[in-house]
């Protein structure tokens, strides 16, 4: 599904990522973990086209997607969420999700601006589809609220709803549990399960070990820009090198 091979990124003289390779299977949930500064977010930003890599390649379903801009990736079925939620703050919750359905809109600009009947019908279809995603993430009641006024936890759910509206094949989440309380984290774990249930591949960068061990099939551990280990949660928990990296002494 997602094939990362030999990704290296050098910032000035600092090697942030050094020859990182791994493969993620269709429909799996994979966690990318590692101590602070391990290069997890840099890796995410390279996969999702926000940073450029120094060398290496990324393939999605066999297709080389290295260096493609985010909007192309979204159309190819790859979406992501951010650690610091990125929403359209002045729009309503529902509108935020409707914008996610933008790529599914077929009626052209002219039809829209002339308010043709079919574009109005489409607008209604998009509204209904957006409501479906709000229901899926459990924030239907907030549909008409301004996105900027949401609590952090609800904003996170909205960001996920909006990403799902793009109907992705794979969703990458950058620290989805950051800033959430334990109740919200529990809800998030269930939501990730539901997303996987729809056949969508999930990749997350996460610090919350409990969440990672709970929801992930496989875990990739990064340390100092290198891949340290890869395996099932159980294997990782028993890996001496990983324990050493986390406890700070090799």
């Amino acid at each position: 599904m997602l094939e990362v091979s030999g990704i290296t990124r050098i910032f000035g003289g600092v090697t942030a990522l050094d020859d990182v390779s791994f493969t993620i299977g269709q429909g799996s949930v994979t966690g990318v973990i590692g101590p602070n500064g391990a290069g997890k977010t840099t890796l995410f930003n390279i996969i999702t086209g926000i940073y450029n890599r120094t060398s290496g390649s990324v393939k999605l379903g066999g297709k080389d997607i290295t260096g493609l801009p985010p909007e192309r990736l979204a159309r190819l079925g790859m979406v992501r969420t951010f650690q610091n939620i990125e929403l359209f703050g002045a729009m309503t919750v529902l509108e935020n999700v409707m914008v996610g359905l933008h790529t599914k809109s077929s009626s052209g600009l002219l039809a829209c601006s002339l308010m043709m009947p079919w574009s109005i019908a489409e607008e209604r279809r998009i509204r209904e589809a957006a409501m479906h995603w709000l229901e899926f993430t459990g924030i239907t009641g907030l549909a008409d609220d301004t996105a900027g006024n949401l609590s952090f936890g609800k904003g996170r759910l909205l960001e996920i709803a909006r990403a799902l509206a793009v109907e992705p094949r794979i969703i990458l989440m950058d620290e989805p549990a950051a800033g959430l309380n334990s109740q919200e984290t529990l809800g998030l774990a269930q939501l990730i399960g539901k997303i996987r249930g729809m056949g969508i591949t999930v990749v997350l960068v996460e610090h919350d070990m409990e969440l990672v061990m709970d929801v992930c099939d496989r875990i990739v551990v990064l340390n100092l820009g290198k891949k340290l280990a890869e395996g099932t949660p159980r294997e990782i928990q028993e890996n001496a090198e990983v324990i050493a990296a986390y406890l700070g002494d090799g």
Binding site: E71, F88, L109, S113, A163, A165
Partner: peptide, 30 residues
């Protein structure tokens, strides 16, 4: 007003003006 608030292209344009990065992430060609 109708275009920006009640059509999907208009909403996409507003989205771009609020947060360009997030807009491109949901597939809007900025």
């Amino acid at each position: 007003k109708f275009f920006f608030y009640h059509t999907i292209s208009g909403k996409a344009m507003r989205a771009c003006s609020y947060n360009r990065r997030a807009a491109s992430l949901v597939g809007i060609d900025v």
